[in-house]
Amino acid sequence: MNIEIFGAWVAVFLTLAIFSFLYKDNPFYKIAEHLFVGVSAGYWMSMFFWTQIQPNLFGRLWPSSQYSESGVWYRIYDLLGVVAGNVFPDGGIDKGHDLHFIYLIPLALGIMMLLSLYKPLNWMARWGIAYTVGMAAGLRAYGFLSSNVLGQVKGTIMPLVNTELPLFDLVEPSHFNNLVILVGTVTGLLYFYFSKEHKGVFGNVTKVGIYFLMISFGASFGFAVMGRISLLIGRFVDLLKFSGEQYHHASIWVLLLMVILLGYSAYKEKENPEV
């Protein structure tokens, strides 16, 4: 059995194990769920380490271009190399960087974050988290202001009278579509104005806003259903592929085995309901 066929059998088992939850919670589902959590955590950690921490952090602190055996800084590196030779290879890390001592700050902040696991010093983790939160907040404030506020406001400013536009067209720009955008934006925004009670004329206007919001939620729900069906199709396409002779009918055998075992378990449960 080559690795491709073995992979297909594993994929079939995991897919059907997850689907088996639709029948009820069972050991197959639990195996797949725990495997997924464990493998994902390990995979992400290793990926982050080898794509960022090793090349971009250690690579900037001990680049091979400035390696010198006599320097104190590289003696520390050589010492680390004895402990983890594949992370700190002989002669420095060759990832195209120059030496930047400023990267000692992120290294320190990173170590502080790991200290959250050590109770007496776990307060230090707050500094690392504070830096991340501050940086992300600053970065996002600009992005939201420029794209979500200014860009969107610009997008809703449309001419109500334009001789080049047709009066009605649902797909292409038209007077009707412009009017829908204007009414939807204004009434939708007014719905979130809570300083005045939603009564009388104002109440009727905000009610129109609710209808626009409901249409939007409906569209979101429709898209969500479509997305889930697409994912189901993807899994079924793979299951059909793996049910072929090339993969020794993996889907059929695994499905049969699972149905028999779950059926047997259900039968036993019926016989001894207290177990």
């Binding site: 794209s147 860009g151 969107q152 997008g155 939007s216 569209a219 979101s220 898209f223 969500a224 479509m226 997305g227 697409s230």
Partner: peptide, 12 residues
Amino acid sequence: TTSIQVNEVMPY
């Protein structure tokens, strides 16, 4: 994008 994201990206 995935279907679920369409409503979020459509305004852009």
